[in-house]
Every structure is written in C-alpha cells, then in structure tokens.
Nucleic acid binder design. Structure first.
Lengths: 134, 134
DNA sequence: AACTAAAACTTAGCTAGTTAAATAATTTGT
DNA sequence: ACAAATTATTTAACTAGCTAAGTTTTAGTT
C-alpha cells in the first residue's frame, strides 16, 4: 500500500498468520481452523451463522472450514430445531486435545507480544480500533 | 485467536483488505495486484525476486500475480542480462492510469486513518514493529 | 391457505497466501 | 574444465478470503 502504516499492518498480519500456522502444524491445524475451534469451544455450541458473524467472515468460508473440521474429526454437526440451521460442537477427541493446543497458542502469542508492556498492549488495541472509515 | 490483540489485528486487516478491494474495483484491480504495481512503479523496474522480497511474500505468489498483471496489460516483462531473471515494468497504459489510482488510494487511506493524529500514527507504527518473535 | 419475503446454508468460481518439488541458468570449488 | 551447489522462476496442490447465485425452510402478509 501507499501508506506505510497500512503496509506495516498487512506485513505484520501475514507474518503472524505464517507463524501461527507453524505453531499449529504439530496438531495438523491451520490458523483459520483454530479460530473456528476456539470460538466454538468458548460458546460450547454455535450455529454456522453465529460463527461467521463472530469471526467477521462470509458464510461460505465457514461452511467450508466447518465441513473440513467435521471430516477431520474435530467437530460434530447436528441439525437444529430450525431445520435450516446446523449446530456445531467440539468432538470428544477435540475436547481432549484442546487444552494442549490452547497452551501452545498461549505460549506463542505471549512470545509474539513479549516486547509490548501492558500499557503498550492497551494502547495498541485502542489505536487499532481507531482505524475505520468515517 | 485467543489473544484479543492478535484477534483485533486479524479482524482489522481483513476489513482493510475488503475495503481496499472495493476502492480498486473501479480499476478492475485487487489489493495484491495494486501492491505489486505500486512497488514496481516506485522502483521503476524490478526482478520478480526483488518484488517478493520487498513485499515479504513467497516467490510463487509473485509469479502468478505478475503474470496476471501482464495478461491484463498492466505490466511489461522482459528478460534480464542474467537469463534466469525476469524484469518487470509498468506498461504505457498503466503509467497513464497510475496517478488516478494512486489518488483514489490516497483518499481512501487517509479516510481510514482519519481518526488517528500524527502522533497516533507514529505510535501505532512503533507498536506494530514491536510485534515479533523474540 | 397461499404467496412472498427472508434466513440459513451451499455451490461454483475468483484472488491470494502457503509448501514442496521441478527446471534452467549461473556460480563456486576442485 | 567440470561437477556440485546456488539462484530465479515455475508448477501443482493445499487453505482461506471473497462474490454471485442456488436450495430449503421458516416467517410474514394478505
């Protein structure tokens, strides 16, 4: 991008996603798959629509990722009372492995922001939230 | 991601890239194509290796994007003295259109960071640069 | 009750990032 | 001078964003 700030933001995110994928490789997971697992875990169960709204991506992205995670045995899918919707939960195997992955991710993320003090983090968060179309 | 800061970073970048694509739609360009055009323009001419090292992506990404841009008439490709390398320049048509795209992008980027003061921008840049593996 | 609109999800097809492995040209080392 | 290593680029195959257009089910309107 022309603006150095926006350029840096894109660079850093690419770098982060690259490093996250390396961390998750031990579990045969990709960063986007982890995002889905993590938010489903925290909500206990979610419909596809809840997932894509939460993660701020489009519906087809989640359809695909959730199906892959189901095939790989990480997620269980069941029909809702409303027969249009699908309800997603972590499988028994996923629940068992989850704490270990979470731990690896915590270590990784703490390493990534180890140069940022508590105030730095707070500040960075506020500054990021200011990026927006008027 | 587990960490809210990293989560926010990913969200914001997705949002930015989405908005950049909307801005560039008038020119039938995608944000990554613009990144390539912009850096080639600023360097006058570049080899593929110079481009991917500058943009911090892998070689195959640039091979593909540059070829597409050549087919679309934005880039001219010629062989270098070293016959392994390819040298890339903006086409006459691209040079003609460039200022107008650049202008649209400047307006867009300024809108995006309009809530950030000069110091905010400086600070944000410094904080972003602190994100790194130790 | 029947027609229409909306919601949840899917399918297909595009760009763009990645890795792994291949090819061709140039450098290096002996 | 020749074999081996390195460098530049490419190809194929994977994940992951997106849009546009489809199906099925539910909700709303008349």
């Amino acid at each position: 991008m022309t603006n150095p700030l926006i350029h840096e933001l894109f660079q850093k995110t690419r770098y982060l996603s690259y490093e996250v994928n390396k961390t998750l490789k031990d579990y045969n997971l990709y960063s986007s798959q982890w995002s889905v697992l993590n938010c489903v875990y925290r909500h206990n169960e979610m419909t596809l629509t809840q997932i894509w709204k939460y993660l701020n991506v489009e519906a087809p992205t989640i359809t695909r990722t959730v199906n892959r995670l189901a095939v790989l045995g990480w997620l269980d899918i069941k029909a809702g009372k409303d027969r249009r919707e699908k309800i997603v939960r972590l499988s028994a195997k996923a629940l068992e492995t989850f704490p270990s992955i979470e731990n690896s991710m915590n270590i990784f993320e703490n390493e990534m922001i180890s140069d940022l003090s508590q105030e730095d983090q707070q500040l960075l968060m506020e500054l990021l939230k200011k990026i927006n179309k008027e």
